[in-house]
């Protein structure tokens, strides 16, 4: 059908791209995770399991991983809640303003991640907008210090940043629900609430799963929000990886942690895709 030259031109560049910037680095990481580093800072190219052993035995690593998952789970929950409410409102009740609201949800995505994280810093800080306001209206006497440099700040910021990501797939799946199914449910005697639980929610499960995966995976690997807003108690696993590849100069251990996270994320995506397939009826 297509000439050989055409197919070569079309397929080779993307394949090269994937190979050079994805497969080779992963392969290198895989190798590094089984190597080790001596006190002089030299990488020893002999195979060993010490990195994985260290990962599982030293509490600082697996506890940070668990805390990261806990933060990611909270971000997932709140951004799903917000994203679903937003998407449901837009899809079923926004009427003619639908497109306008949709744009308003998308616009924050064009603003740099860093700007949005810094914005929260000015809002949540000791002399920040929120504390000043609270003291001004006499809700508190002293600035609240749990607002910034805490897991709370990280969850809040990541929820803000990732809500549009959960909104989009949920909105798409709500928009795909044929409206006559909702009418049929009402016609068969179901109130709007019953229709929501028995028809709308089950049919939006693929979008919910996709949104949940987005929010969890993206926040699990985040390192900027905890760096800027997390403080010591809000440190996440990616911050440890960054320091292992940087100041600590322990590439092998960093690589081992990265691979564990990769495996975790791939497993998550795999299962959520299987579930999505099970619940999609298009």
């Amino acid at each position: 059908m297509f000439s050989r030259a055409y197919r070569t031109v079309i397929t080779v560049p993307p394949l090269l791209w994937v190979a050079i910037f994805l497969l080779v680095p992963y392969a290198l990481m895989f190798c590094y995770s089984f190597w080790s580093v001596n006190d002089a800072g030299t990488i020893l190219h002999s195979w060993t399991m010490t990195n994985y052993h260290e990962l599982l035995t030293k509490p600082v690593y697996w506890q940070t991983l668990l805390r990261s998952m806990w933060i990611a789970a909270r971000v997932m929950f709140f951004s799903m809640l917000l994203g679903f409410l937003l998407a449901y409102f837009l899809s079923f009740h926004a009427g003619a303003r639908k497109d306008l609201y949709y744009q308003l949800v998308i616009i924050p995505l064009w603003v740099s991640y860093l700007v949005r994280a810094y914005a929260w810093k000015t809002i949540l800080g000791t002399d920040g907008v929120l504390n000043t306001l609270l003291q001004y209206v006499h809700v508190t006497k002293h600035p609240l210090d749990f607002l910034l440099y805490s897991p709370f700040a990280v969850v809040l910021t990541l929820t803000h940043i990732y809500t549009p990501f959960t909104f989009l797939p949920i909105y798409a799946s709500l928009e795909h629900i044929p409206r006559h199914l909702v009418e049929a449910s009402h016609d068969l005697g179901a109130t709007p609430a019953q229709t929501f639980w028995r028809v709308i929610l089950p049919l939006s499960i693929p979008g919910l799963l996709a949104g949940a995966t987005f929010a969890f995976v993206l926040s699990l690997g985040d390192f900027l929000a905890p760096l800027l807003l997390g403080g010591p108690s809000g440190i996440m696993i990616s911050n440890i990886v960054v320091s292992l590849f940087g100041a600590a100069y322990n590439w092998p251990l960093g690589a081992a942690i990265s691979l564990c996270m990769l495996a975790l994320v791939l497993a998550l995506i795999f299962f959520s895709e299987r579930l999505e397939k099970k619940w999609s009826f298009q």
């Binding site: 044929p178 049929a184 049919l203 009826f281």
Partner: peptide, 11 residues
């Protein structure tokens, strides 16, 4: 009502 598109619940 019997709908033109039948409107059966796919799930």
């Amino acid at each position: 009502t019997v709908f033109q598109s039948y409107a059966l619940f796919p799930h």
